[in-house]
Every structure is written in C-alpha cells, then in structure tokens.
Simulated assay, not measured.
Amino acid sequence: MELFIMRHGEAGWHTLDNQRELTEAGRYQVAEVAAQIAESEWRPRIIWSSPFVRARQTAAIVSEILNCPVEEREFLTPDDDPGQCLDALLETDEYPLMLVSHMPFVGGFSTLLVDGHRRGIPFMTAQAVLLDLPVVGPGCADLKDQFLP
C-alpha cells in the first residue's frame, strides 16, 4: 500500500492558526509538487486533509492537478496524536492515499511509520513523501520517493 504524506504550502501569519491562508509562493510550491507527483508512477486515489484553511487549500490544489477527491479529517491538525491517524489507516482500503497536514504532525507520523518512534523528521513546506506500507504499523514503512518544491 502506498501512502503520501504532504505538508501544506507556505502560509501567511496574519490571523489565527487554523485560519492561516497559503501565500502566492505557497500555492506555487504546492502546484509544483503536485505536478511532480502527476509525472511519477504513483497517484493517490483520495486525499485526507486537515480542516485548517492552509491544508484545505493545499489539498484543493493537489486534487485539481491529480483529479482525486478530498475528505477532511479532524485528526490531522498540527498537534494531533499520530496514533489516531494510524488507527484510521488500519480501517481504510482507500490506498494509495495522501494525507495533507502540518508540522509537527507530518514529521512525527512519518517517523513513526518508518522508524517506529515519534521524534519526528523535518518537512519543508509543500514537501511530500511516498511511503510503501506492506503492513500498517510503526516501523513497517519504507521511504519510496520524495517530492520537493
């Protein structure tokens, strides 16, 4: 099973955290990464997005370029427990799947899947990774590819 994990694009700082919007540079970053994914051999069937504005905007851009639907998931906000997302992955068959979320969540969740701990690796804005999950669980994923703006 393939799982894309993507951090939202660059966002402005002029409002409350959950209402921050993508900057023009952020929109460009996201479109650039989505185009790279479109040219690769892998495509998500569906996108799960954080309900925060910048993540929803990121997911909408990716959705338009990759022609796949978006569903909001409450457990993908910056400080959510990666364990909740892991539980949801165990219950779905919507693979290949893309998650659009935030730091520190994307770093912690990716590290949990690949290395089995939650210390977290850094993600640039709009960066995406593709993980291969033969089995959904901590330490069971392999990094298959990454996409950088």
Score class of each variant (00 low, 15 high):
Gln36Phe: 05
Ala35Ile: 00
Trp48Cys: 08
Trp48Tyr: 13
Glu21Asp: 04
Gln29Phe: 08
Ala25Gly: 02
Leu66Glu: 07
Gln29Ile: 03
Ser49Asn: 02
Ser50Ile: 10
Asn18His: 15
Arg7Pro: 04
Gln57Asn: 07
Ile65Asn: 08
Glu39Gln: 15
Ser63Phe: 10
Asn18Ile: 02
Val33Asn: 03
Gly12Glu: 14
Asp17Leu: 13
Met6Val: 03
Ile46His: 12
Leu3Gly: 07
Trp42Tyr: 14
Ala31Asp: 07
Arg20Gly: 00
Glu2Tyr: 15
Leu22Glu: 01
Ala31Cys: 05
Pro51Gly: 07
Val33Ile: 05
Thr58Ile: 04
Leu16Ala: 15
Ser50Gln: 04
Arg7His: 07
Thr58Glu: 10
Arg43Asn: 11
Gly9Asn: 05
Ala34Tyr: 03
Arg54His: 02
Ser63Thr: 02
Thr15Tyr: 07
Ile5Leu: 10
Glu2Arg: 15
Trp42Glu: 11
Val30Cys: 05
Arg7Ile: 05
Ile61Ala: 09
Ala35Glu: 14
Gln19Tyr: 12
Pro51His: 12
Glu10Asp: 12
Gly12Phe: 09
Ile37Ser: 08
Thr23Pro: 07
Ala34Met: 02
Ser50Glu: 06
Glu32Tyr: 07
Ala25Arg: 12
Ile37Asn: 06
Glu10Val: 02
Val30His: 00
Gln19Lys: 15
Ala55His: 06
Gln29Tyr: 07
Gln19Thr: 09
Thr23Asn: 08
Gln57Ser: 06
Asn67Gln: 15
Arg27Pro: 00
Asp17Lys: 11
Ala11Thr: 12
Ser50Phe: 08
Ile46Gln: 15
Ala25Asp: 11
Val30Glu: 01
Ala34Leu: 04
Val62Met: 09
Thr23His: 12
